[in-house]
Structure formats: C-alpha cells, structure tokens
Design a protein around this nucleic acid. Structure first.
Length: 580
DNA sequence: TTAGGGTTAG
C-alpha cells in the first residue's frame, strides 16, 4: 500500500481530533499537504464530521493554495450546519471574489441551506438569480433547497412559485413542499398540496404521512387521519416511530383519546415524543390524573422527560384544578431533571392558580417568572379575574397589558365583562370607547367541522356556505329543541363592535361560529354520529351552555376543541365540568 | 464517492 493510501485509510477510521492531529503531523512530515486528495480529505473531516473542528478547518483551508470547488464546498457545508451559518455565505462570497473555482450544484445546495438557517433573505434571492444564470434551475435538489430556503425566510408565495415552475418534481420535493406548509402553520395549504401530489403519481412515503398527519391534527381532520392510518397499516409503516408518534398525536388532537391509546399500545418503540403526545393529549382533555399516570410509566420505561412533558403535566393539573400536584411537578422539573421552567411553564402555573381562584398566588408567580414582559401571563391572569369577578386584580393586569403595548380587543372584552358583573356601567363604557378609539384589532372567531372528508369553516353570522339556508333553518329548529330541554340564552358582556364582522362574547342576536358548525353537523350527519368541532377562540358561556343542551336534546356526543382544551358534551353535561 | 424531506408546546 502506498504511503498516500495508508494515510487515506487512517483518515477513514479517524474519529477524534487527537487522532486527526497525529495524522496531520504525518502528512506534513511526508510533504503531502499539497496533494489534492489528501488535503480535501483532511478538510472535509475537520469541517463536516461530528468530531471535527471548524476552527481547525479554517486554519487548514487558509493554507491550501488555489482551493478546488470541493474544498470550498467542505467549508460552506461545514458552516451551513454550524451555529454561525453566515460564515458559509462569507466563504461563498470569497470563492466568487477569488474566481479560481466555479460553484457547482453542491455549493449552491449548501449555500441555500445556510441562507435558510441564517435567515438571509437577500442572499437567498441573489442565489436564486445566480443558479438560473449558472444553469441549475432544472436541478431538482438545488431547487428543493431553494424552496426550503424561501420558506425559511418567510417567503411562502415565492417558494410556491419556484415549486410550480420546476420542470421535474420528485417525491422528496413534494414532501418538502408539504412539510414547509405544515411547519409554517398553513395546514389547509399542506393538505391541498397533497391532493395535487396524488395526481403527479410520485407515490408517498413515511415523510409524506408524518407531515400530513401533523396537518390533520392541527385542523382536526379525523376522517382523513383515519384513512392515512389504513394506508399505514397496509404498507407496514407502523414500525416507523415518527409515523406512530404522528398518529398518536393526530388522534389525541382530534379528540379520539381511545384511538391514540390503541396506537400507542401497538408501537414497538416509543420515544419522548410518543409519551409527550399522550401526556399532552390527556392534559388538554382534562384528564390530568391519567396524564400523571402516563408520566410515571414513562419514567419506569427509562425515557427522560423534557420541558414539553412538563407543559402537558402542568396543563393537565390546571384543567383538573390540582394545584398541589401542579406545584410538585413545577419544582420537580429543576430538582430532579435539571430543566429550568420557561415562560410557558409559568404561564401554566398562572392559569392553574387563576382558575382555582387563587389570584394572589397567580400574581406572585408572575412576579417570580423570568420575565414580566410577557403579555400572555397578564392576559391569563385577566381571564382568571373574569371567572372570579375580581375587578382590582383585573385592572392591575390590564395596566400591564397597556404598558406592554400588547392590548387586544379580547382583553377589553374581558375587563368589560368583569365591570359588567360588578354592575359598573362606567367601566363597561370605558372599555367600549377604548376599543373604538384605539382601533384595537380583534381576532375573527371561526369554527370548522369535518363532514364527508371535507372541512367546512364558519365565521360569526356566516352566510357564505352553499347550504346556508338549510343551516339557518336547522339552527332555528335546534334552538327550539334546546330551549324545550332547558336552554336559556346567557348574555354575558355588553361590549360589541358593530359591523366589525368579528366574534365577540355575548354579541346578542348573532350566531357564533360553533352554533353554525353544530347546525351543519346535525343537518348533514346520521343519528348518533359524534360531531367534532375545532374553534380558534375560547368557547363563550352561552355557546357552552347551548352545546350541553343540544347534546341532550339530540342525544349526540359533541366534541369541541377550543383554543386551549377539549370539551366532550354528552347527555347534557361537559367533561370540563364547567371549569374552563 | 459531497446534496434535498418527518413528530410533541407555542
């Protein structure tokens, strides 16, 4: 074996910098440092392998005379994966400036990865221009990287355009587009891309399935999720832990905890994602004690919890009013698992004490949190003040929201409700004026329901649906039957913003989106079918009471997922026991 | 003998 070959084989087996430095010394001793094969190999080990060192790679690179494209690629690739991806852009600029070597398809792929990670939008556009000029606009891998880089920089529309113009799209490319939409929270779009993908005959694999299931989970598309599970079983994809986890999460988020459990039990291998999905699922369904039971099993199985596990646990304790347990797990995070509670864990605690009526304790937790500048904590407290009709602490929370310039219409509506309960009409008027004068934006409320594999979305007083007439006449019948069963309209807050088209609590005379979704569901599904509704805001008291009576009058189970938890309505009662 | 895709919170 020649000396060069023996050095190459030593490098092949190298797995730490100590060994590497010895090999490097041999290279220098034999004067092989300018051999392109050797120098490339040295560089790629330092720049790319897990046990390498980018600082050492930079040093080596500075000693290479006239580096070849592959050497530049090693540096650009190495930095694109590092915590300082902008350095990759720096090396690319240097490469172009020196002009000795030309970038190839690999250079551009690594560079686009760096632009995605570094949030270098301008550079991403520039690379787009370059790759067209150099002739890589037809390279499916380079273009897939371009699409991802645009999405990573928030330019979803441009990414879609690049995708649409690609002359050839393979399975990975389609999967990328779906996962980009799914990760950007654009779940309708992710599901729509899939229907286009089916026509393209590229097939689908585990990656496709995982992204699709994640989108199904977010929009509550249970029927579609069930179809995917059939496909999973037929193709033996259950062995894949990602697929199993995504199925568990989909069922839990679609309100089917029994099915989530069944999938969980069938899984050959479970990781922290599998356990977290179950714990969070149980927590948001208000089954905190079962979440704790799963947590104990998780520890017995030797799986280490992470900070998300504790969000699930604390959320479960909060919805079940178990403050003592909640405090225990909050402290356990740091004392037993070396996990520092983050702002979201403090948020769970504020919510937990707030719901339980321990408003002083909630206030104390905000004071102890890592930052008091988070509007979410104050908003949570304000919500609790609404439940417990506490004007003084409510005003305190409001004061902080104003100071943080984070006030929204929902906050004003909450405080108006608190004033209203205290029969302080001046306070109510003050809030109404605040919304109007400051032009505070409201979040449109909507609900959706999946019937026959398609999702139907409703806004407040929505008349845009094709079956609108039928929906409204059904709603009249439902209100009549619910009233016979004991339903009485609950007018809550007197705040309303006329003509805003927004859904605000107690906007008397109008129909909240979930009522329209329920009417559609009852009109279009057969008797005894459960209705599953997803809502982007919290359910108001009136709709909550309405849904209870509808479940009784029509003998239907109605499962509503609101912004923070699940409500299972059956025989006139709700699983949250009116504690929400 | 160098490239592109996946899950939990928010």
């Amino acid at each position: 074996m020649s000396k060069i070959n023996s050095i190459m084989s030593l490098l092949q087996g190298c797995n730490n910098m100590g060994k590497f430095q010895k090999i490097h010394a041999q290279v220098l001793l034999n004067g092989y440092q300018d051999d392109p094969t050797i120098s490339n190999k040295l560089l790629s080990f330092c720049a790319i392998s897990i046990s390498g060192s980018l600082a050492y790679a930079s040093l080596l690179f500075s000693q290479v005379k006239n580096p070849q494209t592959s050497s530049w690629n090693s540096m650009i690739r190495g930095y694109s994966q590092s915590p300082t991806p902008l350095q990759a852009v720096f090396y690319y600029n240097k490469m172009m400036f020196e002009g000795q070597s030309r970038p190839d398809n690999f250079t551009l792929s690594f560079l686009l990865k760096a632009c995605e990670k570094a949030k270098a939008e301008k550079k991403c556009r520039e690379v787009h221009g370059s790759l067209i000029r150099i002739g890589f606009a037809t390279d499916v891998v380079v273009c897939t990287n371009l699409v991802r880089s645009y999405v990573g920089n928030g330019l979803v529309g441009t990414a879609q355009m690049v995708f649409d113009e690609m002359p050839e799209r393979d399975l990975v490319c389609w999967n990328s587009m779906i996962s980009c939409y799914s990760q950007a929270g654009l779940h309708d779009e992710a599901l729509n891309i899939y229907s286009r993908m089916r026509n393209a005959n590229v097939g689908l694999d585990e990656f496709t399935i995982v992204s699709l299931l994640s989108s199904c989970a977010h929009v509550g598309a249970l029927n579609f999720g069930v179809q995917i599970q059939k496909f999973v079983d037929e193709n033996g994809f259950m062995d894949n832990v990602f697929v199993g986890n995504a199925l568990v999460d989909m069922y839990a988020k679609c309100g089917s905890l029994d099915w989530a459990c069944r999938v969980f039990d069938r899984m050959q291998k479970r990781d922290v994602f599998s356990w977290n999905s179950m714990i969070i699922g149980l927590g948001v369904h208000g089954r905190g004690d079962e979440a704790i039971h799963f947590f104990r099993q998780m520890l017995t199985a030797g799986v280490r919890p992470n900070s998300i596990t504790f969000i699930g646990l604390l959320c479960g304790c909060s919805h079940q009013g178990q403050t003592e347990e909640g405090i225990k797990y909050f402290h356990m995070m740091s004392s037993e698992f070396n996990l520092e509670p983050g702002i979201k864990h403090y948020g769970c605690m504020v919510d937990m004490f707030g719901r339980a009526g321990k408003l002083d304790k909630a206030l104390e937790f905000i004071g102890n949190s890592p930052t008091q500048d988070d509007p979410v904590l104050w908003r949570t407290l304000l919500g609790a003040c609404k439940i417990h009709r506490n004007v003084e602490i409510g005003e305190e929370a409001m004061k902080h929201l104003v100071q943080l310039k984070a006030l929204n219409a929902g906050d004003c509506v909450l405080l108006a409700g608190i004033y209203d309960a205290a029969q302080d009409q001046q306070g109510v008027a003050k809030m109404r004026k605040l919304i109007k004068d400051q032009g505070i934006k409201t979040i449109p409320g909507w609900s959706w329901i999946e019937v026959d594999n398609s999702v139907h979305k409703f806004l407040v007083d929505d008349k845009s649906h094709n079956d609108s007439e039928e929906i409204y006449s059904k709603l009249k019948e439902i209100i009549h039957r619910a009233t016979l069963a004991g339903y009485v309209v609950e007018e809550e807050s007197l705040v309303s913003v006329p003509d805003s088209g927004e859904e605000l609590y107690g906007n008397s005379g109008s129909y909240h989106s979930e009522k329209l979704a329920i009417a559609y569901g009852l009109a279009k599904t057969s008797e005894r079918t459960s209705l599953r509704i997803v809502k982007n805001l919290r359910v108001c008291r009136d709709c909550h009471s309405f849904t209870k009576f509808v479940s009784k009058a029509f003998n239907r189970e109605i499962i509503v997922r609101d912004r923070v938890r699940f409500h299972h309505f059956k025989h006139g009662t709700c699983s949250c026991k009116d504690y929400w």
